[in-house]
Nucleic acid binder design. Structure first.
Lengths: 129, 129
DNA sequence: CCTATTTATTAGCCTTTGCTAACTTTAATA
DNA sequence: TATTAAAGTTAGCAAAGGCTAATAAATAGG
């Protein structure tokens, strides 16, 4: 079950809004992603079909267990890539933005190499301290 | 004048086919990118509108000066990203593939940081020899 | 409690980018 | 040279993903 880039973004944002201690209404998602509400409504319909979120009519969007698992994976990639770019010297806002674009396209192999790179560098830093 | 991802791919492939010492017929581009000929035909129409390529009816596709400049930029990003991934330990085929996806989305800032990283590493290597 | 504002939904449109099918032109070869 | 094969084009369809406009439901303030 392969999610499209945009569905991954919507799902991830529901997760992030929850992590930030809030709820994920259509309006919240719309604002956070910079799209209009009908676009969110359409995406939510798709995510419901895929059993990734639930939503009572006119209610907030919640993650299913499967949805939470998937969102966590995507968000993990996001954090990895953002940290990686920051380590290369990219500014935080740009790193965040570029990570958001990269997280949907990179192969498992590249991600795992980046992960290994991050670990190496972290170790070196610790030793140097 | 911002090109879409797919138009960038088509333009870049024309350039690569030329670099490889061949010509870029619709069929060649189609084979190289793994799409059908009508998709190429449609893209070529768009690239012609943008003054990036020329093509006589039923003839081969050629780059304008502007097209060559643009294609060179895109291909440069491709080579940079591919080399970068390879340096991280990614296999060549995957690096090529992922570079092809990244080359369209990364910000100028991230690209320039990656470029700086590559230079640093190269210097270190030279010194070590 | 009722009206006004905000939020959610639905319908329908547009663009991008791919496809197939059908047709035309060019090239190859018997 | 006539016929077939290959390449190019055109028309039209489909999916993804955004939008606006209009409608419906929910909420907040008076």
């Amino acid at each position: 079950m392969k999610l499209s880039q945009s569905l991954e973004d919507y799902l991830e944002m529901v997760h992030i809004l929850h992590l930030n201690g809030g709820i994920a209404r259509v309006k919240d998602i719309s604002t956070a992603l910079g799209v209009k509400m009908p676009s969110v409504a359409k995406a939510v319909i798709e995510l419901k079909k895929l059993d990734l979120v639930t939503q009572k009519p006119y209610g907030e969007v919640e993650l299913t267990t499967k949805g939470r698992r998937t969102a966590t994976e995507i968000f993990g990639r996001h954090l990895l890539l953002k940290g990686f770019l920051i380590r290369l010297g990219v500014s935080k806002p740009t790193a965040d933005n570029d990570a958001c674009l990269m997280e949907h396209i990179l192969s498992a192999e590249s991600l795992s190499r980046i992960e290994a790179f991050m670990k190496t560098r972290r170790k070196v830093k610790k030793v140097q301290k």
